[in-house]
């Protein structure tokens, strides 16, 4: 049970990082942390006590496997996360190119 709470703490750390940090790169890192907390939680949701990796092998009896479905889904979520992160880093670099800073308090062309 405490593992779930550790996940929750990790998620909160990520969200805190997104909300409180002023550096674009640190915000991106916050998003990555929060994303991994959710992925970890999803993988944990499929865990069972003393479970084995869900790999079908030739000469072993299959007993007590963990649920393979969350692992497949988490893999997909990681791939999506990769795309979003790459996109974000690219945008952050472009912002640096235009504004010469990573500080969000100095990046204020938009009003309202």
């Amino acid at each position: 049970m405490y593992l779930y709470f550790l996940c929750l703490i990790l998620f909160i750390v990520g969200i805190y990082c997104i909300l409180r940090k002023r550096n674009l790169i640190k915000i991106i890192i916050g998003i990555i942390i929060a994303e991994y907390a959710v992925n970890l939680f999803f993988a944990l949701a499929g865990y069972r006590i003393d479970g084995r990796a869900p790999i079908y092998s030739q000469d072993q009896a299959i007993a007590n496997m963990v649920d393979p479905l969350p692992q497949a889904l988490v893999l997909t979520a990681i791939v999506i996360g990769l795309a979003v992160t790459a996109m974000m880093v690219a945008i952050a670099i472009r912002i640096y190119e235009k504004y010469g800073t990573f500080d969000i308090t100095k990046i204020r062309k938009l009003h309202g």
């Binding site: 670099i93 472009r94 640096y96 190119e97 235009k98 504004y99 010469g100 800073t101």
Partner: peptide, 8 residues
């Protein structure tokens, strides 16, 4: 990425 204008 090439840095064209502004920024360092």
């Amino acid at each position: 990425l090439k840095f064209k204008t502004g920024g360092k």
